[in-house]
Every structure is written in structure tokens, then in C-alpha cells.
Design a protein around this nucleic acid. Structure first.
Lengths: 144, 144
DNA sequence: GGTCTATAATTGACATGTCAATGGTTGACA
DNA sequence: TGTCAACCATTGACATGTCAATTATAGACC
């Protein structure tokens, strides 16, 4: 039944998303939003352009997600004095809390996903995924 | 920088989709549509409900994709005489051709993605992805 | 036969992603 | 200084996904 890697990756990814969806609902976050919070927490603040690059997503998507996250009280847009084109985005306390909870859910999901994997297999799996990503990324840059 | 499996899987999946996107444009297909064609080609025809289960997607999404695919001449909806609630979906010649081309693009992409992977590593990678999928799937069924 | 429930598909409302176009701001350079 | 290109964010149009509600048909049971 078509055991292509395209299919395998799609299904694993999809199953992950489905496993996490209910928790997103609990937290009041959308699917792409925890990633944004994680980046902001690590970096203190960020422009939307940087967020888009980090998330590998169109800036338009970031813009709209931030609308919703700001409404939910997870982040703030504070204009940049030096450069009025830009917005500096910062996380609120509420955003930090939500991200902490999210990480817990992710760990649970990951344990479930990796049931029966030895430590060595986990490391190998992570390595394969990284290499696959890099291979595609490089091709996309030079080729296009 | 947060090396979670959630992140790793997301990025690999995303890179795959980005690599294939231009080809989808060429073919006039949307992202979820080749999967539908593949199923129809293997099974001759199908109801929309079955397609939704196979694609692990809401029936509503299938309904709208079929609208577009029918408009594009890739499939036909032919009512079921026995059960007028249902539609039997069939692939057109154009649909078969597009799917053939799609498979070629997928193989190319896969080669790119697996550059530097030995045969044994490929097999292992596929195995890990399948196991991860099954683990999540089972948990989702019993747990929820 | 008539009602009641289950099923197939569709539709609407919303979130997220793409691409293309727009608006403001900055900065470089003649 | 004035123009022009580059850049950041936003918006609109569209595809895809979710969930919830609706419509039409089937099938079961009284």
C-alpha cells in the first residue's frame, strides 16, 4: 500500500499533531503558536521576520497568529523605537506558563510515540530526521 | 535549540512538502490530492467516507478537494444506484497521468532526502517511522 | 406503512499555510 | 536634498484542515 517515505513521514507527523490537538485547545493556543513562544522565551524578544524564518513559515501567517496570541494575552507587540517598521514581540507571563505546560504535553506524547525504542534507537531516529531535513534543505537552497 | 522529536518531525515533514510544492503547481493538484488519486487508482473507485479514512482527514476536506479535482478533470463523482446517499468516485485518465508524474517527483525528492543513507539505514528509518505512527495511533484510540 | 436513528455528503465558521499586493519607513546614492 | 530601492508588517484571495450543523437517504423497528 505505497510505503513511500513521503507517506510515512506524513502519517507520523499527522498522528503527532492529532495527539497534541486536545492540549492546544486546553491552553487556548493554535497549532503553530507554541513554537513562537519557545523562540521568544529563548531569545527574549524578536521581530516578526525572525519568527517567520525560525518557524519556516510565511510572515503573513506569523502576523495573524500574533494577532490571536496578543488577544489571548500570550505576547505583546512593542514597537521598535529605533526602527518604526519593526515590532518587537515579547512573551508575557501567561505565555511562559502556557509554554511550560505545552512542553509537558510534548514530553508525554514523545514517550508514547517512542514506546519500545531503545536509547540507541531514539538517538538514531533523531539523527535520521536531522539528516533528512538537512538534505532537503540544502537541495532546496541550491536548486531553486 | 530544542531538539524535540516534535520539532524534528515537523521540520522534516515541512521540508518535504516545500520540496514537492512546485511540482504540485505544475500538475494542477493541491497538497492532499495525490493521495486521493493513489487510493482511487489502487481500488478502482471509492466512497468519500473511505477516502477520508484512508487520508485520515475530515470528510469535509475530501468533499472540497474532490470539488476542485472534478473541476480539474482528475476524478468523477458517479452516484451509486444502490445507495443514493453515496457517491462513487473514479479516476479519469488525466488523473492517472498526473499521479504517474507525481510518483516520479516523489521518488526524486526521496532520493534527495536520503542522500548518504545506506540501504540498511533507509530500512531502519522507515521502520522507526512506522513504529512511531503505530504507537501514537494506538494510544489515541484506547486513550481517547 | 410510519417513525426514528444512523449514515453520506455538504456547508459554514474558523485557524493556518501559500502567494501577491499594499503601506510605511529606512537608507543609499546621485 | 530628493529619489529610489529594500525591508517590515499587514491585508486579501485562495487551499486545506478542524468541528458543528444541515440535508437527504437507508434501514430498523413498532
Amino acid at each position: 500500500m505505497e510505503r513511500t517515505f513521503h507517506m510515512l513521514l506524513y502519517r507520523a507527523f499527522h498522528a503527532q499533531r492529532n495527539a497534541l490537538r486536545p492540549h492546544l485547545g486546553e491552553l487556548g493556543l493554535g497549532a503553530g503558536q507554541p513554537k513562537i513562544l519557545g523562540y521568544l522565551i529563548q531569545n527574549g524578544s524578536s521581530r516578526q521576520r525572525q519568527l517567520a524564518e525560525y518557524c519556516e513559515v510565511d510572515p503573513a501567517a506569523i502576523s495573524r497568529m500574533l494577532d490571536s496570541m496578543q488577544k489571548g494575552g500570550f505576547v505583546l507587540r512593542q514597537g521598535d523605537e529605533q526602527n518604526r517598521r519593526c515590532e518587537q514581540i515579547v512573551v508575557t507571563e501567561r505565555g511562559r506558563e502556557a509554554y511550560g505546560a505545552w512542553q509537558g504535553f510534548c514530553r508525554e506524547m514523545e514517550e508514547q510515540m517512542l514506546t519500545g525504542f531503545s536509547d540507541q534507537e531514539r538517538a538514531q531516529f533523531a539523527d535520521y530526521l536531522s539528516r533528512a531535513y538537512r538534505n532537503l534543505k540544502e537541495g532546496g537552497e541550491s536548486g531553486a
